[in-house]
Every structure is written in structure tokens, then in C-alpha cells.
Amino acid sequence: MNVNLNKREPVYVQVIRHFKEQIATRNLNPGQEIPSRRELANQLKINPNTAQRAYKEMEEQGLIYTEGNSPSKITKDEKILGAVREELIGQAIDSFIAAIGPIDVPLDEVVGLIREKYRGDKE
């Protein structure tokens, strides 16, 4: 796990975002075990208290769950998983629009370009 953390955003927020990305891209599968908070702290070189806070938040948001003493796992709840995916797509679109907006390109042209590029990337 390699994450570039910036210094101005709360670290726990960045950790949660990182997990959401991993979930949306299916690098982390539903029901998959995640590292303990200590392991995570060690991997990301962050304070264990911060790792703890990130996990607590994720647990509250239903992104992960813990049964008894076993390690925490990624949720299997399709609704939440879908929401994560939508959230990330939404964010990506937002930032795309924010960037393309000022250039004032007709929508059809944009869609056409996207279609072309997107296919090219996928191949």
C-alpha cells in the first residue's frame, strides 16, 4: 500500500478516501480483511491514533465491519458499495467539469471526445 499523503488535509480523511478508492476500483473486495490499525499505521507511516480514528469513521459510515475479535473487513453491503462508487464517480465528474467548464466546449463535442479517448485508454 503506497499513498501520498498531503500535509494540509486531516490524515484520517485522506486514509478514508484511499480506502474508498481501493473499494471502488475493487482492489479491496467486499468481505476482504483489512490490515489492523497498527499495521496500517506502519504501512502509511502515520500515527496509530490517526489510523484508529480513520477506522472508527469508516466503521460508522458502514464501509468496514468487525465481528468479535477477528480483523475488520470491507463491507458486503451492496448499497454502501454502490454509494462509494457513485461518490467517487461524482467527484471525478465534478473535477472534470470544473476543469473543462471555463473552456466552454459544447456538450456533444465533449462527449464525443470522451468516447474516443476512453476507448483508446481501455484498449
Binding site: 500535509k7 494540509r8 480523511v13
Partner: peptide, 14 residues
């Protein structure tokens, strides 16, 4: 440090 980042968006160096 986390409160500072959360409330004011500032790093320690800031």
C-alpha cells in the same frame, strides 16, 4: 495536528 488540518487546513509547517 489533526485538528489544525481539519479546522484550518494548515500543515504544521504552515
Amino acid at each position: 495536528t489533526e485538528e489544525m488540518r481539519e479546522d484550518e487546513g494548515k500543515s504544521v509547517v504552515d
